[in-house]
Amino acid sequence: MFDTALTSSDFLFLARGAGMTLLVTAISVVLGTCLGIACGIFRFQVGPWWAAPMTFLLDIFRSIPLLIQLVLVNAFLGMVLKLKISGFSVACGVLTLYTAAYCAEIVRGAIEAVPGTTRRAARSLGLTWWQDMTSIVLPLATRVALPSWIGLALGVMKDSALVYIVQVTELLKATQILITRLQEPLLLLMICGLFYFVISFPLARLGGYLERRWSND
């Protein structure tokens, strides 16, 4: 079975693809989460009415398939605005907004789960809105949001496979290229799956670890 034509430089090619997947995911999840937190707090604070334009915008990113978003944004920036923007930037930009759209909903729900009476107690001790937000609301909301957020991050990592459409050779695309050349789909897909596992496992474990650590309070 392991009588294979796969060379070490092919393996390195796969590893670079995995690195690209990790990089695109990390950038998008970090930026998207920051943006999502800001949007989620805004959405909670001003109420559904005033946040409607923002919610509508985010809903667009949530409801149009990622592949279509990537193609359209790439075409719009390149052909309509005539901007010279790398596929990598487009990929990170679109995935960031995609992450932010989901993250905003998670954050809003988690903030709503913090009891109003707890916040009132904090304010009545003289904490400002900002101090209440950072010392009480966000720590409590984080505990509520964590499982969904981990799910989101893992989902974004898998969805990042679609950025091949804007000429970014990430893990799955790299695998496909090798499959075409070597005609050994099973072995290559196994290695590809293993790379995905190695990337996502620590994140999944981190979630479990934090949940256990926080379960005492």
């Binding site: 009476t117 707890t118 009545s124 001790l125 309070d217």
Partner: peptide
């Protein structure tokens, strides 16, 4: 002010609950 519902900050220990506003405010 102390309310009817117990409003502990559940993510902080008892002593941290009492320290928080002293530090911040």
């Amino acid at each position: 002010i102390v309310f009817q519902q117990w409003n502990a900050f559940p993510h902080l220990t008892v002593v941290e609950n009492v320290m928080l506003a002293q530090r911040k405010v």
